[in-house]
């Protein structure tokens, strides 16, 4: 069986700076794979190339055997590969529920014209979007804040909103860029459980960038480690924890510890 996602010799250069150098690895269906590495290692850049937010300098990304790199972000999202953002990225004048409703537009059965004239299919869509939004928010434990304006949410909820928006699109692969940032330990552990159940209950394959090592070690099936744009290791959490190159990379940088 071919892997769901294949990253093939992907390189990204910004002028003289090589943000990603010849990165290759596979992701199989239903896997939770984390990409870790010190600040500036090129993790977000890799995610942006997988979701076609930035073009690759060379190399390609295949999804189900089909190239998805160097396209447009919305095209890749339509195929089912959806990213969230490291920086706070929200629809600030929408409520949580409105955001989750608008994010479902890929599931629409009616055309834009159908919505304008109020066709039967459009009315059905509106009902089903609302229902699914409530269901999803309930699942994510966000029902209480569903009518809250996105711009009024505290940091921890903003991350969850990002995940909710990504999930609402009905993705096959979800790329989460630091979904636990700004969360305390309890919130993080709750999110870890949620991400797991997203995979288990919804069959979503998850790629994740995170600095929170305990969380990464708990949640990941496999881990890919980047350092200065190079892939230095790949393996299960225990393999990674005992990998000398990884330990060296992390000891070499001041603010990160891989220890558990």
């Amino acid at each position: 069986m071919t892997p769901l996602l294949q990253i093939r010799n992907v390189t990204k250069k910004y002028g003289g700076l090589t943000a990603n150098n010849d990165i290759s690895f596979d992701v199989s269906e239903n896997e939770i794979l984390s990409v870790i590495g010190p600040n500036g290692a090129g993790k977000s850049t890799l995610f942006k190339m997988i979701s076609s937010f930035v073009p690759t300098t060379s190399g390609e990304v295949l999804f189900g055997g089909e190239r998805i790199s160097n396209l447009k972000p919305h095209v890749v999202a339509r195929k089912g590969v959806v990213r969230t953002f490291q920086e706070t990225t929200i629809f600030k004048s929408m409520t949580v529920r409105e955001s989750v409703i608008v994010a479902q537009h890929l599931r629409a059965k009616a055309s834009l014209g159908g919505y304008f004239w109020g066709s039967k299919a459009a009315k059905d869509d509106v009902v089903s979007f609302g229902k699914y939004a409530d269901e999803l928010l309930e699942f994510l434990g966000m029902s209480e804040i569903s009518d809250e304006l996105a711009s009024n949410l505290p940091q921890g909820n903003l991350r969850a909103l990002g995940v909710a928006i990504g999930l609402a699109t009905g993705p096959k692969v979800l790329l989460l860029d630091e979904p636990f940032a700004g969360m305390n330990h309890d919130e993080t552990m709750r999110m870890v459980e949620l991400v797991r159940s997203v995979r288990d209950a919804r069959g979503v394959t998850v790629l994740l960038v995170e600095h929170d090592m305990p969380a990464v070690m708990t949640i990941s099936d496999r881990i890919v480690v980047l350092n200065f744009g190079e892939k230095i290791a790949e393996g299960t959490p225990s393999e990674i924890q005992n990998n000398e190159k990884v330990i060296e990379a992390y000891l070499g940088s001041a603010d990160d510890e891989i220890g558990m």
């Binding site: 447009k72 972000p73 919305h74 999202a77 953002f85 990225t89 929200i90 890929l106 699109t169």
Partner: peptide, 12 residues
Amino acid sequence: QNEELASSIGVN
């Protein structure tokens, strides 16, 4: 409100 987020959810 956010063009990047819009394209991430598949808006052309």
